[in-house]
Every structure is written in C-alpha cells, then in structure tokens.
C-alpha cells in the first residue's frame, strides 16, 4: 500500500489506486512475467556451446530462413495490397463496401486452425484455386507464405485506413492548383503522410507472422529443411522431451519479438509525431 503510494507522481483525490495497481501488477507477474522468465532461466541449464548448437543446427537454420523469409515476403505483399485496400475503402464508394470493410478483420476473428485447413483445401492441387496454378502451393514453402499473408492482412489496412481518412483534402487541392498531376499529388503529398503508418502496419504483420503456428502447420507440409517453421521445431523438440533445446530456440524467437516490439513502438511514435505535424 505504502509502496503503491510512493510510486504516485501527483496526488489524486480518486480512490482505488493501491488496489487496482496491486492487482494489475500481481496478475501481470503471475501470468506473464514469471512464466516468461522461466524460459530465460531454463536456458541457463545449458552450457554456452550446447545453446549455440541448439539454435544454429542446420535444421534450425533452415527454419529461420523459411520463417523470416516467408514472413517478410507476406508482410511486403500485405503492405502493397493493404495500402490498396485501405485506399479503395476510404476514397471510393462501391456496392458491398461496408461488408468488405467489416470482413477485413476476419483473420483476427477466425481461429487459425480453421484458416489453415481452409487455405490448404483451396490451394491444394485439386482445390478451387490450386487447380489453376502451374505450381504447388499447399504442402510447400509457398503455402507458408499464403497462410502468413492471410493472418497479416488486417494489420496494414487497419493502421493505414485511419491516417488516410484524416488526410487533409485541401493539401491535395493545393498540389493540384500548383500544377501537380494526380499521380504526383498522390505520390508526393499523400504517400509521405501515410508512410509511417504503412511501415508500422508492415512491422506488425511481420512480427505476427514470425510467431504464427496454427494456420501454417496445415498448409506447410512440414518437411524438415524445406517447409518447417521455427515454432513447429519448438514443438517437435518438446515432443522429444528436449526441453533445453526447445527453450533455446524459444529464447531466440522471444528476443526477436522484443526487438520487433521496440521497432514497432518507435515507428508508432514517429507516426504520431508525423500526424500531429500535419
């Protein structure tokens, strides 16, 4: 109680600070902090060479390449088409627009396992889309990419959309009055305004894709060295009771996540500053 009061920067007449903070801190500690620290502490049971071995074996390296590569490519495709979707939703009117707008959030609401089996069925050799494609998608690294595009889809749209809505149309009119053609106006006036939000959306989609498991394992085929993602390797090691190895890989993933979190926070601060300035 005294401790909570001591943290207060300014006296407040409102009650409930001790209770609320006490409960929040206790809950965060029990659910998040203590279990997460278990992962870091567990790695200390390994010697340094054991740790390095566990996180750099060829099979693990192959999984990093696939996970990072497919996540990056998927986030990139989402950046391009997410911007397009946000633009179309904000600037144009077409039949069914509100339905489309609401459905963009589907990947947030649809369980990943359901998305996984649906995408696998469509992109399989005899699937609705797969049968028209000359190359294999389901059960190949390309399938990983498709699943990651699906789960990352809302991030770019939902970060760019509000910024695009707030763009002052008078700026565009001013550019046009000064003789800019439409493409110049969009690329030199509108695009720089949405750029921070676009990058934030890209980073969010990328970060989400790195850890994704449910939708990917159905469509990937999970062949070692070829289409095995890093989270799956953690599970594989766990099933072999190799807790140390599983945790070592998990720690690498966790550190990556923390770095991404930092990057995203910096991007968001930049975006806020930019938006405040416009």
């Amino acid at each position: 109680m005294m401790l909570a009061r001591a943290l207060l920067r300014r006296h407040s007449v409102l009650p409930g600070f001790d209770l609320a903070l006490g409960f929040a801190v206790l809950y965060v500690s029990l659910i998040v902090l203590v279990p997460l620290s278990a992962a870091f502490l567990k790695t200390f049971t390994l010697t340094w060479p054991q740790f390095v071995d566990a996180v750099t074996s060829p099979r693990v390296m192959a999984s990093y390449r696939l996970t990072f590569g497919a996540s990056f490519a998927a986030a990139l495709l989402n950046a391009v088409f997410g911007l397009l979707v946000a633009w179309v939703l904000v600037r144009y009117r077409f039949p069914g627009q509100r339905l489309v707008d609401a459905l963009v959030d589907l990947p947030f609401a649809l369980p990943t396992a359901v998305a996984g089996i649906a995408l696998t069925a469509i992109y399989a050799k005899n699937g609705w889309i797969g049968q028209w494609l000359p190359f294999k998608v389901s059960f190949s690294p390309l399938g990983v990419f498709v699943a990651l595009v699906f789960i990352g889809l809302p991030f770019v749209v939902r970060t760019v959309q509000p910024v695009l809505e707030d763009v002052n149309r008078e700026l565009e009119e001013a550019a046009a009055t000064l003789g800019a053609n439409r493409w110049q106006t969009v690329s030199k006036v509108v695009f720089p305004i949405v750029m921070p939000a676009l990058l934030t959306g890209f980073a969010l989609a990328f970060a989400r894709a790195l850890g994704e498991y449910g939708s990917v394992i159905f469509i990937a085929g999970n062949m070692p060295m070829i289409s095995e993602i890093t989270p799956l390797l953690i599970i594989t090691k766990l099933e072999q009771y190799d807790y140390g190895g599983a945790t070592a890989i998990a720690v690498v993933m966790l550190v990556t996540s923390f770095v991404m979190l930092l990057v995203i926070n910096m991007l968001q601060a930049w975006a806020r500053k930019r938006q405040g300035g416009v």
């Binding site: 997460l36 790195l210 850890g211 498991y213 989270p231 998990a250």
Partner: peptide, 8 residues
C-alpha cells in the same frame, strides 16, 4: 503477450 508466439 501479443508479440509472443503462441507456441512459446
């Protein structure tokens, strides 16, 4: 928790 992989 949002930035941690569900597997982890």
């Amino acid at each position: 928790p949002f930035s941690v992989s569900p597997v982890i």
